[in-house]
């Protein structure tokens, strides 16, 4: 029985369907430590609020994973998410009747921004790291045009549903499960397979008839689409619009913090930044770990200034652990 479980675990990991051992170990540790330190970790408020805190970064890290798997990187992700959120909130004006429109706009803006990134990277052949960094300022500029100052109102139904639970399961947890399901569909599709192929070895993929440029464009479009979901989660979590929602205070780099955290989550999750190896399951774990670490730092009474240091140490530890043979995952 155990044997079979271990074997299925290995098979699952090889297929990249489930988070690798590194991220699973880290996740279990952070959950356990958090539960020990936080007095009401399992209270309904704590469970719901924790899951609510996870969703925006979970969606952003899936978005980043898809782009990274295809051999790219998206440094404009945070800015694009912010742009989607402000466009959506400006159109909503707190009116529940406009919710479907607002959802469509958030997703649409994300996808369109991703398309733009993809076309620039694939056809202008600019380095993704430079091209998307430049695009982050374009998205940031539009964001400030659309919503120059914090404002806008999310309909109450959106913020309350987000904090609700269905038969004891937080809605936010269901959203995360749904996002994982969507990722699973993407991964199993032809496009998903091509994504891994292009990220793994572009020339080999090209030689075997994969339309490389098309796949790269689609990786950014899909990334942007998940970014649109992140935007909606931010709106549901915050209840309002703010152009600096994903930025560290005192910096004008719109969405900068979101972008960096999404990349950290991808790395912790075991997706190789060179592309082609990994999966969003690990990144989801990475995003949750980052959030739980903040909680641990808080409840352990450690000065908040150490949070960044600990986050950095975890990213390094995750990278180091992948070098230990027992933790090494076979390439997907």
């Amino acid at each position: 029985m155990i044997d079979r479980a271990v074997r299925s675990l290995t098979v699952g990991m090889r297929r990249g369907l489930v988070p690798g051992l590194t991220v699973t170990t880290l996740l279990l540790i952070t959950v356990a430590v958090n539960a020990l330190l936080a007095p009401n970790f399992f209270s309904s408020y704590s469970v719901i609020s924790n899951f609510s805190s996870f969703v925006p970064l979970v969606a952003a890290s899936i978005a980043q994973t898809i782009v990274v798997l295809g051999g790219g990187i998206d440094l404009s992700l945070g800015a694009l998410i912010t742009l989607s959120s402000v466009m959506s909130v400006v159109l909503m004006e707190g009116d529940p009747g406009r919710l479907p429109l607002a959802v469509a706009v958030a997703i649409g803006v994300g996808a369109a921004g991703g398309l733009l990134n993809g076309l620039i990277v694939a056809f202008l052949r600019l380095q993704p790291i430079v091209a998307t960094f430049a695009m982050s300022f374009v998205f940031a500029g539009i964001t400030l045009k659309v919503l120059p100052q914090p404002g806008g109102q999310v309909p109450a139904v959106m913020t309350t549903t987000y904090r609700d639970s269905v038969i004891g399961i937080p809605v936010a947890a269901l959203v995360i499960a749904g996002l994982y399901g969507l990722w699973w569909v993407v991964k199993r599709s032809t496009l998903g397979r091509h994504l891994y192929a292009v990220g793994g070895d572009e020339r080999a993929a090209y030689a075997s008839g994969v339309r490389v440029n098309q796949v790269r464009v689609m990786s950014y479009v899909l990334g942007g689409t998940f970014g649109g979901v992140a935007a909606l989660a931010i709106l549901a979590n915050t209840g309002s619009g703010d152009p600096y929602v994903g930025a560290a205070v005192g910096t004008a780099l719109i969405g900068g913090q979101t972008t960096l955290a999404s990349i950290a989550a991808v790395v912790i999750g075991g997706t190789a930044l060179r592309g082609g190896v990994g999966g969003a399951g690990g990144s989801i774990g990475g995003a949750v770990i980052l959030a739980l670490v903040s909680n641990i730092v808080f409840f352990a009474g450690i000065s908040g200034g150490y949070r960044q240091l600990i986050n950095g140490a975890i990213v390094i530890a995750a990278l180091a652990l992948t070098a230990v043979p027992a933790f090494r995952r076979s390439p997907a």
Binding site: S49, V245, T258, G304
Partner: peptide, 23 residues
């Protein structure tokens, strides 16, 4: 209880939720 760190809005939401949980 002092929660002081460089965070974005989502991080500050989490700070406040932790303060709520801490009673």
């Amino acid at each position: 209880i002092v929660e002081s760190a460089d965070v974005d809005v989502n991080g500050q939401i989490q700070q406040i939720r932790n303060l709520i949980s801490a009673g």
